[in-house]
Design a protein around this nucleic acid. Sequence first.
DNA 1: TGCTATTAGTCCATAATCTGTACATAATCC
DNA 2: GGATTATGTACAGATTATGGACTAATAGCA
Lengths: 380, 380
Amino acid sequence: MTSRGVRHDSMRARNLAVVLAAIHRSGPHTRAALAERTGLTKTTVSSLVADLLEAGAVTEGGAVRGGERGRPGVAVRLSGRRVAALGLEVNIDYLAACVVDLTRTVRLRRTVRADNRNSDPALVLTGLRDLVKETVAQAEAEGLRIAGGALAVPGTVEDGVLRNAPHLGWRDVRVADLVELPFAVDNEANLAALGELWFGCRDADFLYVSGEIGIGAGLVVAGEVFRGTFGLAGELGHVVVAGDGPACRCGGRGCLEVYAGQDALLGALPSVSELVDRLKAGDRQAMETCERAGRALGVALTSAVHLLDPGRIVLGGIYEPLFPWVAGPVAEVLEARLAPMRGAPPSVVVSRIGGDAAVLGAAGLVIQQVIAEPGRMLGL
Amino acid sequence: MTSRGVRHDSMRARNLAVVLAAIHRSGPHTRAALAERTGLTKTTVSSLVADLLEAGAVTEGGAVRGGERGRPGVAVRLSGRRVAALGLEVNIDYLAACVVDLTRTVRLRRTVRADNRNSDPALVLTGLRDLVKETVAQAEAEGLRIAGGALAVPGTVEDGVLRNAPHLGWRDVRVADLVELPFAVDNEANLAALGELWFGCRDADFLYVSGEIGIGAGLVVAGEVFRGTFGLAGELGHVVVAGDGPACRCGGRGCLEVYAGQDALLGALPSVSELVDRLKAGDRQAMETCERAGRALGVALTSAVHLLDPGRIVLGGIYEPLFPWVAGPVAEVLEARLAPMRGAPPSVVVSRIGGDAAVLGAAGLVIQQVIAEPGRMLGL
DNA sequence: TGCTATTAGTCCATAATCTGTACATAATCC
DNA sequence: GGATTATGTACAGATTATGGACTAATAGCA
């Protein structure tokens, strides 16, 4: 737990990361601009950039912005040619994979339908492994080198072990050693939040609300996902809306999920798209259901804002198609409850990437790691 | 916002911090043990320790633990002789100051009664400045050198500016330049949490609940205070317990504060000690009030656990004297609502330092800074 | 067109810091 | 008392960043 001292090699590694992060954060820069931003000398930056060029993480050339007088600089930008990340997702009715390059361009995207409810983990993971093999082969055929992978799962994760995924019916499944690559596993909502950070709103501070059968949330503060002590933070679905409300499957009463989970929203309807159809047709009962769910979500988010202090609120999952009918009540409740004490409540916006958030976020996590530790991830 | 590159001097500064942190984290160590823990060589550690010795941050000698065979090492331990931190607090009815040395020993402690409700900030700050002068002079007379100070205030703080302290009646007061020292200002609940971290339970992961007129909370994860996006996280008092409960002064309904704030607990009683007396005497009504408050607190904490995932829960402020009557209902509610899904809920314990938490925490913040940046704080 | 000012990027000697081996020191074990 | 073992220091060597000098490339201006 004690942090390690800085040696010459870790100093170099850190400086590589600092330069790469500066390029990533604010677009292409000349070496001179990078030197100014990082506080390193031009000489040092040149040397670091040379390493990054060789690793294929950056390219030279392209628009040289700004230069008023004097010799124009050479822009150094992230390269999409070589380094790429593998994002994976196991969910209730599908497996998904994607490959994203360092410029955040989605290069490959595959989904395999499968009924994974109460499934055998070994079987599903074999299927996933096949999907990975195909995807990686295809990516390599395009000249990409996969620097690492990450997997999103609908459940709680501790140290690479899937502790509990109620809807899959999995418990204590070891998934970290799925492939021979640097590999991470994390909760769907956390990764969906990262997806929003990398491919959606790109804001550095927000709470992503993932409406599925359960309701999860991922908080991003200063570009980092907040995970809590055991990685269990963000369980919005069981935040209490009414202390003595109806019983919830979690054992509590009056949890948000009871009012605004998928089951509560759909009632007897077969699917979310059916609900949306009815809403579009102006079905009174459907609209009241959404109104009620939205208000409950507003109450739960009031508590979440007081405790987590998010910059804004992004609604995703099933709340994305339902946004037009849910967002109003949510915002009204937040305004009424938060404005007097806090001033303007966080704005409520819709997710821009919908159902792809988690897979993309998984790839985003890997890209984040590459930028944070280029030395380790790229073998420098 | 871009992080700076590592230069030779910052490498040294960082390594000083790493060594000091290792000594702080797990007690006195020999140079050899420090070398092993930090991954640095014995030579480097020797050189770093020499600097720390000269700065007065550590001393040699004392028990040499462990050594089985071979030449015994010289223990290097934190020194209480020279470096010290100044903790300050402005509260509704007092000003407080303390001086704590690097070994966490409280060397000085002063409290000045004063009615600061709806007071003139300038006047109160003048009084505080006098208190600082006296305290610093006294500390220096004991040979201590104050490395920095921190101030706890009952309100929200942004960038050294006190934004809003409803009970003091202050708004947008600039307090950061109170003294000519490295100086920080923060919210009372956050600093009380740090106090608990440094002088109380010393756990690295917990949620400190600060019961006062309002109810605040400070979350510590891995030894760091979580502040949220704007530093407003941890407003436990306005977490919703019952969506359509009674109105709260914040504009919401059914907030925790309505059920378990000081006003709700005391009712017509003049003081907390009066309430405690009645509870000790077995007063039925008082006990029911506490029972009800405890259950409400349990419900709010259920939401907090789902969202923040704390390691344990520490009850402080007025909940400290009331702990015997409040803790039971809190724990019961948590158990009932959390156990089925999460397993054992976080344990609920009483604060060990009571009303001193915030001042001590302010000093703790400074010590934390000294250990994190000995170069800057000690002028190395 | 050519000169000057200005900015970008590289070269190379120098400085700062950590590493690694060798060694003196100081205990325990038998 | 000698062997063993571990601590802490000394010194040469390795790694990395620095800083000033130098080359390169462009715009402005005469």
